[in-house]
Write a protein that binds this DNA or RNA. Structure first.
Lengths: 144, 144
DNA sequence: CGGCATCCCGGATGATACTG
DNA sequence: CAGTATCATCCGGGATGCCG
């Protein structure tokens, strides 16, 4: 998606934001956007979704290895939460040693698609953000 | 965006996720996705961005009122963080009483666009997630 | 009005040890 | 292998009070 930004064009964006906020206030007094963010805004959920989305099916320790620095406990907790939300499917095989496989549900896939925009943004603008932060720190220092 | 999900089609999603993860591992050892998520994954950042995107320019207490239940402290902290990241512009008017206005930068607008997919997903699937959670809770209870 | 400093609590997260 | 249980820790974030 290519976006050109001029002085008088942010109306497009404004409409976007207004639509989200408006839809968000329909049903309950609790904004669904905040609700979902509370769920997947934690440290590991989206990483799990990304990795599961990238590899289709993963065993517990495979997923753990891919993410790298997640503790066993937190991976368990996170996966349970995702399972409860209907985003991840858990499949236990009655074997010795045990084997447990995880994969995204259709709902999880749809979230992955919705998230892809944010993911590509992160990769595209990471440097820009880093620079902005440096500039801000410098400004603060000189004014401090 | 309309998405049809069949058994043999998740390759599309897999490619999505793989691309994000792949891009994310290029530059540094620190994944930009996680970095950005750490920034905007907190309780208030995205809400600020949404409201600023919806209204263009807002004063401190206007924004606070719109969000509703954010403490003064957290709104300040959040806005500072967003400013440091180059997502929000802060404008102080030398008046008495003081007036401080906030608005999104172009970078902030681009993030809003990237986020819109997630926002609409949240609104569209909030109910589905709620149902899944209920079903999960019921399952857990019966299995005890 | 907008913001900073201080205190403090609770939940999120980690480390470690044990189990089916 | 894939957890569960327990304890320790850390930090987000709320409450309050003061300031320019």
């Amino acid at each position: 998606m290519h976006v050109t930004i001029t002085d008088n064009q942010p109306l497009v964006f404004r409409a976007e934001a207004q639509k989200i906020l408006q839809d968000a206030q329909t049903a309950a007094s609790i904004c669904p956007v905040r609700h979902v963010l509370d769920r997947i805004g934690d440290k590991w959920s989206l990483l799990c979704i990304l990795h599961l989305g990238a590899t289709d099916t993963l065993r517990f320790n495979e997923l753990r290895k891919q993410i790298g620095d997640v503790s066993q406990r937190m991976l368990t907790v996170t996966l349970r939460s995702l399972e409860a939300d209907g985003l991840v499917q858990r499949h236990v095989y009655a074997e010795v040693p045990p084997r447990v496989e995880y994969q995204l549900t259709p709902l999880g896939h749809s979230l992955l698609v919705a998230f892809s925009g944010l993911g590509t943004w992160a990769n595209a603008h990471a440097q820009e953000v880093a620079q902005a932060r440096q500039a801000f720190a410098a400004r603060e220092k000189s004014e401090g």
